[in-house]
Structures are given as structure tokens and as C-alpha cells.
């Protein structure tokens, strides 16, 4: 019964179903809209803002904005790309990201989007924050230096695992991830099988003992740019 809605993204006609977000409809049409915080199966968190598009002249997050008949969406334009590049660069300077020694390198969504958008070096000054590392848990460690505050672990633990291992504390630039214990991750009920351990887009939550199982150069985004899977829908 779902009604078909027609609109355009960068001049290309796209058909979606009523109730879909711009991102969902674009995915179906094989148009990639970059994203970081979005986690399939959960309500859109809408914190990263990498999916920003311009809808009828107004900026909106593609992951939360519903489609409507005839809307004109700008996705791959110089202005939108500039906004996205700036946001990605902000994530790089806000934390301490040492890609060459990070086990996530090659599988990291932040790094992959930076490559896809053509970022070489941030124009913003690095903020060099002092952040914590918690390796207390037998199987998992959290390195807040690499955290981009997307909220995926918070959502996955709460909405998929039915626990509440993670949440945010503080506000503004002081905002950070905290665990549901007086001090350490080891004192929470986090299990290695939890979805929350698998969703971090960067290398902030990593599993112990499996480092470098796949050599650098042969990892996911070493082979194809991020978003290629979505773009493969285009010819379906």
C-alpha cells in the first residue's frame, strides 16, 4: 500500500516510499550519501552531520529528514561537499587519530570518508585533547582518543543488546563516552558478543587479541571506496 514519492537528488529523479528518509530513498536508488553515526536497525541518532544535504534550499540531515513529493535535494555539490569535508576534518582535529598505527586503519569509516572526499590534511589546528584509555576488560578496550562521539555504541547497547553499558557525560567540548560502572569497563556487563562491540566506526572500541588479522592493504576500504556497496544498487 505504501505510496510512491518522487523527488530529485542533484537533478536525478528518485522514487521512494512514504515514510522513508532521504538517506533510505537514496540508498535504494544507489546514490551514496556519506554518513558516520547512522546505525541500521536503530533510530537515527543524527549527531555526526556528515549526511547533511540541502533540501529546497535548507540544510537537513538526510538520515532524519523524511522525503516529500517534489523536494529538490542537493547532495554532491561543491557547497555540500565542503560542509562534509569540514565536519570530517573537525573530527580529526578534535581527537587524536594516529591512522598509521591504528588497527582499524583500512576498515575505518572516518578514514574511508576522508579518502573519498579527498581530504589530505586538515586546515584546522589540532586540539590535542588528553583522553582516557580503558583496557580493563578482558576482551575489549576503549581508546577515547579515537572516539568521534557518534553514539553508535550507546544506541547498540541500549536498543539492540538491551543493556546500557555506554552513555555520554559532560557537555560541549567536554562531552565523552562513559561506561555504566563507577570506574571501569571491566565492571560492566559488556560481553564480547554484544552488538555494541561491533559498531564503532573508528578504532575507539576494539577487540583484544585479533589485531592485524587482515594485513593492511587488504582491508575493506583498501579495496573499494566507502559507499561502493550502495552505489551498486544503482543499476538494479
Amino acid at each position: 500500500m505504501s505510496e510512491t514519492i518522487t523527488f530529485t537528488i542533484d537533478g536525478v529523479e528518485v522514487k521512494g516510499k512514504a515514510g522513508q528518509t532521504i538517506m533510505q530513498a537514496a540508498d535504494g536508488a544507489g546514490i551514496y550519501i556519506p554518513r558516520l553515526c547512522y546505525l541500521e536497525g536503530c533510530e537515527p541518532f543524527a549527531s555526526c552531520r556528515v549526511c547533511t544535504v540541502i533540501v529546497n534550499g535548507r540544510p537537513q540531515a538526510a538520515c532524519t529528514q523524511p522525503i516529500a513529493p517534489g523536494i529538490v535535494v542537493e547532495n554532491n555539490t561543491p557547497e555540500v561537499t565542503q560542509i562534509r569535508k569540514d565536519i570530517i576534518e573537525m573530527m580529526f582535529v578534535e581527537g587524536n587519530h594516529f591512522c598509521p598505527v591504528c588497527d582499524k586503519s583500512g576498515n575505518c569509516e572516518l578514514q574511508a570518508i576522508a579518502y573519498r572526499l579527498g581530504i589530505l590534511v586538515p586546515k584546522f589546528p589540532y586540539l590535542f585533547p588528553v583522553r582516557e584509555l580503558d583496557a580493563s576488560h578482558p576482551y575489549i578496550f576503549i581508546d577515547q582518543n579515537r572516539c568521534i562521539l557518534c553514539g553508535r555504541c550507546v544506541q547498540a547497547s541500549r536498543d539492540i543488546d538491551g543493556k546500557h553499558v555506554f552513555d555520554f557525560v559532560g557537555r560541549g567540548p567536554e562531552k565523552k563516552i562513559r561506561v555504566n560502572a563507577a570506574a571501569r569497563l571491566a565492571d560492566t556487563d559488556l560481553d564480547i558478543t554484544d552488538k555494541a562491540c561491533d559498531v564503532c566506526p573508528v578504532g575507539a572500541i576494539l577487540k583484544k587479541g585479533v589485531g592485524y588479522a587482515v594485513p593492511i592493504g587488504q582491508r575493506l576500504y583498501d579495496k573499494q571506496p566507502i559507499g561502493s556497496d550502495i552505489e551498486a544498487n544503482a543499476n538494479k
Binding site: A46, M90, P173
Partner: peptide
């Protein structure tokens, strides 16, 4: 509030 990247980081910059 620190929820979204542009405001949390951009204002600092």
C-alpha cells in the same frame, strides 16, 4: 550541548 560535531568542534575553532 556537544551532541553534534559542527557545533561542538566548530565553535571552539
Amino acid at each position: 550541548c556537544g551532541y553534534c560535531t559542527p557545533c561542538r568542534v566548530g565553535n571552539v575553532l
